[in-house]
Every structure is written in structure tokens, then in C-alpha cells.
Design a binder for these strands. Sequence first.
DNA 1: CTAAATCCGACTAAATTAGTAAGGTATTAA
DNA 2: TTAATACCTTACTAATTTAGTCGGATTTAG
Lengths: 135, 135
Amino acid sequence: MKVSQRTEYGIRAMISLARHYDNGPASIKEIATGEGIPGAFLEQIMAELRRGGIVESQRGVNGGYMLSNSPSETSVGTVVEILEGSLSPARCESDCSKMPDCSTRTVLKRIEESITETLDNIYLDELLKVGVHEQ
Amino acid sequence: MKVSQRTEYGIRAMISLARHYDNGPASIKEIATGEGIPGAFLEQIMAELRRGGIVESQRGVNGGYMLSNSPSETSVGTVVEILEGSLSPARCESDCSKMPDCSTRTVLKRIEESITETLDNIYLDELLKVGVHEQ
DNA sequence: CTAAATCCGACTAAATTAGTAAGGTATTAA
DNA sequence: TTAATACCTTACTAATTTAGTCGGATTTAG
């Protein structure tokens, strides 16, 4: 039930882009050094976020990444969904009929719904307001 | 953000014990064959749940496992906490001061709180009422 | 005594994670 | 036009985690 390092980096990078909003694209290098993330690794992550449609890229000199939508329209849920594959903790296959109790599915489904709803309602702009080191 | 197979087995086993409540201890073999879980693996899981205090064991012939408390007092949150180590998706160490933004921590903390609260409020007796294959 | 069961620790194969590395492609400043 | 910048893509690797397996010791009812 942990978010992977990869996803944590992704969230941090997105917050970084939100902070940078209205300021042109931010390059991998900038974000990576600013957040202490390995550059080559972040590159992969950003590519995935781009394919997911929540960031756009500009190639060439002075290029970089920027949010596709404003921080107030970009939810953490989307970020996690893109990077984590799915928020679903269940793995219900077609052989559900063989399972002696599908109540487990129900539990896992409730967990999923709860997580999804929580994350989908946290937007990047809120996070910018949060003070640093508040813990 | 997935619950591991191990934890899913644990939840299923606990539901199985809840169903068996007031009926003496259930053996690993019974549970394992009933739920389609590898016996030796389930043995490990049950031992962990016992050390966690939510089930008790009876050794020897006719022995097995039983819930420490009634199904209405046993929450899924406890099961997951014991097996998954912690519900916390964050890994905030003492070097938090080096992090350029702790807002990530805040997000992860909110996620954690949400999951914990959800799971802590799902009790085994509720799950017994859920119809099989309801999906 | 012995069969049924928990208990315990060590071991292993497969999958996942967290990166590295290297080279290609597009864009633009000069 | 060319050089520099920065994205893009794929392949590889070491370390960790996961999902088990296995062998044997201990406990207990009959």
C-alpha cells in the first residue's frame, strides 16, 4: 500500500511545474536538481505523464515541460493513476466465479473507491498553499 | 497502490474465520482448500496475524485458528496494517528538512489518513452479509 | 504412541523497482 | 546552416520484494 518512489517523484515534479506555472516550460534538469531527483529517471517519468496527457512538452532550446491545465484543474489522482497504472488494489479476473467469497472484492473495491475519491479531490493549487516543512 | 497477494489472502482467511465463528477453530488446511490459498504460505500469514493479536491458535489435533474478537469487532484495517506493515504510503525520514517541498508529505499523509479511516470502518461482520458474486 | 495440527527458520525463483546508459530527434539561437 | 539544447526512446542492470516451498520441531487428542 505504498506509493512507489517513481510516483512520489512524479507528484513532486508536478508540484514543481505548478509552482512554475505561467513561467514558460521547465526543463528536466531544472526540476531534477531542484527536487533532488535523478535526471534520467525523471525523464522517463515525465514522458509517461506527457503520454497521460497532463503535461505538454516543448523540445529544443529553452524547451521543457509544462502543465496541460492549470494547477486548480490538475488533481493528484490523475498523476497517481498515470504512474501507478491503476488505483485498484484488486485483481479480479474472469474466474471470479471460482472464488468462494467475492466479499473480498467488495472490500478491495471500497478501498479503491476511497483512495480514488480522496486523490481526485486534491488539486495542485491546494498543495502550493501548504507551507514547507509543515509535516 | 495495490494490496499484495499476501494481504488479500489474509483478508480472505479472516472472512473465512468470521464465517466459522462460534464453531471452534478452523485449521490451515480447511481454510486453504476452501479459499484456494497455498497451505504453507497461509501458515506464514496466519502466524503473523496471531502475532498481531487478532487471531488465536490452538495446537494439536482438532486445533486451528479462531478470531480473538467477534467479527463485529474486527476491522479490515487491522488486518491490512498487520500484513502490510503500515498503511502509510510516505517514507518521511529525518532529512525532511532537505526536501524542497514537504507538500508531497502532506498529500501522502492525506492519502494515508483516508485509507486508514476507510479500512478501520469496515468490519468482518458486514462482509459476511455481502452476497457472493455481487461484484 | 501416533496422527493431526501449529510453529519456526531457511531457502529460492520470479517479478518489480529504481535507476543507468546510449543514442536518436526536434527546435531554436546565433 | 550549424551547434547547442532538450526532449524522446529503448535496452540494460543491480537490488529489493514477493510469493511461495521445504524440512523439521513442538503440542495435543485419542
